[in-house]
Amino acid sequence: MAQSAISVDAHHEHQHDTFKLLGFWIFLVTDCIIFACLFAVYAVLRTHTDGDLTGRELFEVKGFTAETFILLASSFTSGLASLAMHKGSKKQLLGWLAVTVLLGLSFVGLEITEFANMASEGAKITTNGFLSSFFTLVGTHGLHVSFGLIWMIGVMVQIGRHDIDSLTKEKVTIVGLYWHFLDVVWIFIFTVVYLLGVM
């Protein structure tokens, strides 16, 4: 009797590890809803250009294609990072995370340039409903990516200090999940905003 009860307690502690991942998945559901709303708002306001330029005239195919490939590549390298982690190679793990961060940085850089170019052509967030919703949707994604970059660098520093242990492992898994999620959201932005926009 006593034996079994103790093992119940011990078992209970052990489960704590998996809670974080479950909670994070649920958080991603809520983030999904946030993006779903922003997409809906964009869909409603897409045509509300108030007589100004439309997406077809504003979006630059070269720019958003490059952004897409860079972000996809970064998702791939973050996958490689987690493979390296499971192999237990700290050097490779840090290396791939660094590549991911660099790719993420260049994505953000390109996006800022794109926004700045549009603004200089007079397409600002204040111009009309279409551009307001465009900048909000794409900008929110960009903010998410920037936040993810800071987070990933934080995780890298921790790996540097503590090596690969159960805590850092969990962190790499979660930040990786977040990164893939942002990639999926971008695929939707790419199709709904940019492809449908230039077509």
Partner: peptide, 20 residues
Amino acid sequence: VDRFFGAHIFTATGGGNPMM
């Protein structure tokens, strides 16, 4: 965003949509 950046998401002018 509307109030701070002067966007037109829910405004009655500039192509916004208050009913949204």
